[in-house]
């Protein structure tokens, strides 16, 4: 039998091998590029950039406020004293200054143990929801809390506690568990009112809950922008 067939078959084998692996490679490349995940990465970059910008702006605001404080300090001698004092109280009320005092610190976290024990169960039953934080905050307010912060975010009149997927947004900042809620006020009263309701419910559902009474608690100032475009002061008639 002559060997004339050897070369054509080899050529065909070469072509077949080439196309086979090339196509395999192309298809493998396609399955890894998911347009949705690509879009998500884009969105994540946008979010990160915006958060960076918010941070920068907050620093700018902080600097400007410091400057303003200095200018006001300079003018403090004389008849402005009274006005300065009222300004200071107004700032404390607005949450624009860090405050210190007695209070309580509540730490709550997702019930990861419970979820591990029942992996088939609805995970919603084991994570902290924004409504639980809202309830705790409301109760603290009822208990006469004078300043409240969650994970370092000072709660002021315009502060939102909002659900954004698996995170919670406070002062447009993303907050993730564990949540540390600090409140300045009468420790005994605050602890009593909080343990009586929401915390009790959470404890029943086996959430890791911790409550500490603290002698010296510092709550940071609100870092964001605070402007009133629509509300105007009106004389008390």
């Amino acid at each position: 039998m002559s060997r004339k067939w050897l070369l054509p078959i080899t050529i065909m084998c070469f072509i077949a091998g080439f196309f086979l692996t090339f196509q395999l490679k192309v298809m493998a490349g396609i399955s890894t590029v998911n347009p949705i995940s690509e879009r998500n990465t884009n969105l994540i970059t946008i979010i990160n950039d915006l958060e960076e910008e918010i941070k920068n702006q907050e620093e700018l605001i902080g600097e400007t406020r410091d400057n303003l404080d200095k200018l006001q300090e300079e003018q403090i001698k004389g008849r402005l004293q009274e006005l300065q004092d009222s300004l200071k109280t107004a700032k404390i009320l607005a949450g624009l200054t860090p405050v210190a005092g007695k209070g309580i610190v509540i730490t709550v976290d997702d019930n990861t143990e419970g979820l591990k024990a029942n992996p088939d169960d609805d995970p919603n039953k084991y994570i902290i929801h924004y409504s639980q934080l809202l309830n705790i905050v409301s109760e603290l307010k009822v208990g006469g809390a004078e300043a409240i912060s969650i994970n370092g975010q000072r709660l002021i009149t315009t502060s939102e506690i909002r659900c954004v997927g698996n995170l919670i947004l406070i002062n447009t900042t993303r907050i993730a568990p564990p949540f540390e809620i600090s409140a300045i006020g009468s420790p005994r009263l605050l602890a009593e009112i909080v343990t009586a309701s929401e915390l009790a419910i959470m404890k029943l559902s086996n959430y890791p809950v911790d409550l500490k009474e603290v002698e010296e608690l510092i709550i940071p100032a609100y870092k964001g922008d605070l402007q009133f475009k629509y509300a105007q002061t009106k004389g008390e008639n």
């Binding site: 078959i9 080899t10 692996t21």
Partner: peptide, 19 residues
């Protein structure tokens, strides 16, 4: 004698995977 076509197949596969 079947070695050559096999080599051809492997060579093609190699080039296809490196391209």
């Amino acid at each position: 004698m079947w070695i050559l076509p096999l080599l051809g197949l492997l060579a093609g596969a190699f080039i296809g995977s490196t391209l």
